[in-house]
Design a protein around this nucleic acid. Structure first.
Lengths: 236, 236
DNA sequence: GTCTATAGCAAGATAGAC
DNA sequence: GTCTATCTTGCTATAGAC
């Protein structure tokens, strides 16, 4: 029909060829399919062939958009981060106590991740490879990492807890590191409903709150600053 | 020749078939070959077909001894642990200061691992998968883990540093966890010769030593014991 | 129990045509 | 951008020799 021909006209300046949107649509379609299959059947069961055929594209086309299966994991990871942020930010909005804000944010993260617990082992396996673009420490995942650290920056920023100025600067990144550790524990947590991870969060966050306050004591101030200096040196 | 027929007679009681040693020899030959190829060409480049042919055995035979490529990694890991212990124990023998013993042991571990830095990324990738038998937290690697914790038990045991009794019990396992963390850092360390990891060890161990002593202060005693209780709760 | 040879599958990845 | 065909490799299976 004539109308459908008109529909294909791009709104952008480039008049040549197909709509510049089509690529993005195909890309999103592949990610959607992959994320669904990851959750339903796990990582190994989700073959690239299956993703492609379920998405209605050829295998080669899937590889045109995602250079490897790991790149699909990367896309999945980005979505997860966004979901965690979307859940955590409103959850801590009313609270002012630092330890409580931290606890709430961490529980929100676990809530979001729970449906993927079975698949998370493979996810983290890919993430730990330094050569992988998905590695949380890699150059390529810097945006996702910064976004994640940003959440902890907010946890710290809006809390009423009094903090040493230098610690306040470094704390978000340290909390993010702690979050990585909790995630690692969660992946290995075989208790029903990952109860142990919940226990860890509930009991560790008040301790972190107390320790952070203790750093203001004279006996601990020196050692605290040395730890912070070391952290800075390791990053440079 | 008649002599060679005689050579085949086993020394053990079982008179049937070939020498009982033969299997172990083949097994060792395959591991030797795999470790060498891992170091020379990395993990992905080292195919099972290549390991088998370089070792002079058939592919089927390699799989007879090692159920999967990951099992080769496991064997490699066991060797590494033994080598680390063999290097660390004599290195700390004369020293009595806790922080110095810890530092020396950690440097010894890095020394042993250095030739494999390029390949370590893949190693740790396999190790992080909770489903893998190579996971340092898995049931199957309990012997290797215990051996590794044992090294830190020795670091603590023969030191003159005065320690809270409860902390003394838990410290070896906590130090082992720290060692896992350092290893993770080392794997991601792209500085020449992994200088940053050396810096981390040199500067973190005195801090650990001071912090351990500080836990004996009255202000910190409570929070210390709560941390230790949490650690126990998470293990149970 | 140890080992070879060989065939073949499944799935990640690539090449080249359209 | 999209497809089909093909390659590679981890892994399995089988049948048989010693």
């Amino acid at each position: 029909m004539a109308a459908s021909v008109n529909d294909k006209r791009g709104r952008e300046g480039a008049p040549s060829g197909a709509s510049p949107r089509r690529g993005e649509q195909t890309r999103a379609l592949i990610v959607d399919t992959a994320v669904r299959l990851f959750a339903e059947h796990g990582y190994d069961q989700t073959t690239m062939r299956r993703v492609a055929s379920d998405a209605g594209v050829s295998l080669g086309n899937a590889y045109y958009y995602f250079g490897s299966k790991e790149h699909l994991v990367e896309a999945f990871y980005d979505r997860l981060q966004a979901e965690i942020r979307a859940a955590a930010v409103p959850a801590i909005a009313g609270e002012r106590d630092f330890a409580t804000r931290l606890r709430t944010a961490l529980h929100a993260a676990v809530d979001v991740m729970t449906p993927y617990h079975g698949f998370a082992g493979k996810l983290i396996k890919t993430a730990t490879d330094p050569a992988s673009p998905v590695s949380p420490f890699s150059e390529q995942s810097a945006p996702a990492r910064e976004a994640s650290i940003g959440l902890f920056r907010e946890v710290v920023a809006d809390s009423t807890t009094r903090l040493d100025a230098r610690l306040r600067d470094e704390l978000p990144e340290l909390l993010w590191l702690g979050h990585m550790g909790i995630t690692l524990y969660w992946v290995h947590d075989t208790s029903p409903g990952q109860r142990r991870t919940r226990l860890l969060i509930d009991r560790a966050t008040p301790l972190v709150g107390r320790l952070v306050e203790l750093t203001r004591l004279r006996v601990l101030r020196n050692v605290t600053h040395e730890v912070l200096e070391l952290v800075r040196a390791l990053r440079a």
